[in-house]
């Protein structure tokens, strides 16, 4: 029983920034270990987007008009940017459910009684979700290539631009996990966080240029779709991939999709991180 007396005293806090990074990484590692022990979650997370790739390609392909033609080939190459973008936003549900689960199981109480950096529990979770999203996206890209998706089919592109597209997609996914974090802290049960994280994603992702050409929408819907932050990333990815069906709208986010995507995502992170961290500090399980 000598271990008690061997116990170390708590050290004084160091540099807040490096401490915040360190604490976040410790929590991220914990969440990644968890995810690796429940691979079902990652696998089921893959099924839906893969189904979308296959269904949209074979069912809708051939009847959708992209750049004035209804070739199945054209729709396939148009579609992938949209599916990729939709897939990264599903991380919202995962991060929300994870945080709600931690609240539910009392782990948040444990963390909140420790002398950790204040945003670290949430940042750690969102970082782990980012890793998971990257993995999902990688597998999805392989599936997309298998069904015949190619970059540079509409105009030239290069490896750097393709990587930049994936970067913007991941940033969008990361931004949405902060929305998920806030939802998870608010609803408190993992089930509610999952459905609460998903329901509003459908209108957001469908009211966009992800799956259809926005120019065929009624004007008011078209305006919403063109200013939808989600559409900006879809358009940016399409442009960077050199895929067809890019919007010719004169709406600012459609003309400057890369900037729009960056600005929107960073803005979402800033706003929702602030709200979530505040909520975390006052959260009671």
């Amino acid at each position: 029983m000598s271990a008690v007396s061997d116990a170390v005293r708590i050290t004084a806090p160091g540099n807040p920034v490096s401490r915040s990074i360190r604490d976040s990484l410790i929590v991220a590692k914990r969440n990644l270990i968890r995810m690796s022990r429940i691979p079902e979650v990652v696998i089921f997370g893959l099924i839906q987007p893969i189904m979308f790739v296959v269904l949209f390609t074979y069912v809708f392909g051939g009847s959708m008009k992209i750049d004035g033609s209804t070739s199945a080939e054209g729709y396939k190459n148009f579609l992938m940017a949209g599916i990729f973008a939709q897939t990264v936003t599903f991380a919202t549900a995962s991060s929300g459910a994870g945080i709600a689960d931690d609240m539910h199981k009392g782990l948040i109480d444990r963390f909140r009684s420790l002398p950790m950096a204040r945003g670290a529990v949430l940042t750690g979770r969102t970082l782990a979700d980012l890793v998971q999203t990257a993995l999902t996206l990688l597998i999805l890209a392989v599936v997309a290539l298998l069904v015949g998706w190619r970059v540079g089919t509409f105009h030239d592109t290069n490896a750097g631009r393709v990587l930049a597209a994936f970067g913007l997609l991941l940033l969008l996914g990361y931004a949405f996990t902060w929305i998920g974090a806030l939802i998870g802290l608010t609803v408190r049960t993992p089930e509610a966080a999952t459905s609460g994280g998903l329901v509003w994603l459908f209108p957001v992702t469908f009211l966009s240029g992800a799956f259809v050409d926005t120019s065929n929408m009624t004007p008011w819907l078209r305006h919403i779709a063109e200013w939808n932050p989600f559409s900006a990333t879809v358009q940016a990815a399409r442009v960077l991939f050199g895929n067809p069906g890019q919007s010719h709208s004169t709406a600012w986010p459609m003309e400057h999709p890369v900037w729009a995507s960056l600005i929107y995502s960073v803005l979402i992170v800033v706003v929702f991180r602030t709200l979530a961290v505040r909520k975390y500090r006052s959260a009671t399980a």
């Binding site: 914990r30 270990i33 968890r34 009392g106 782990l107 109480d109 444990r110």
Partner: peptide, 13 residues
């Protein structure tokens, strides 16, 4: 240091 009424441990760790 705190040990709450309900064990707060990560089940998957």
């Amino acid at each position: 240091g705190l040990s709450g009424q309900f064990a707060a441990v990560d089940e998957y760790l």
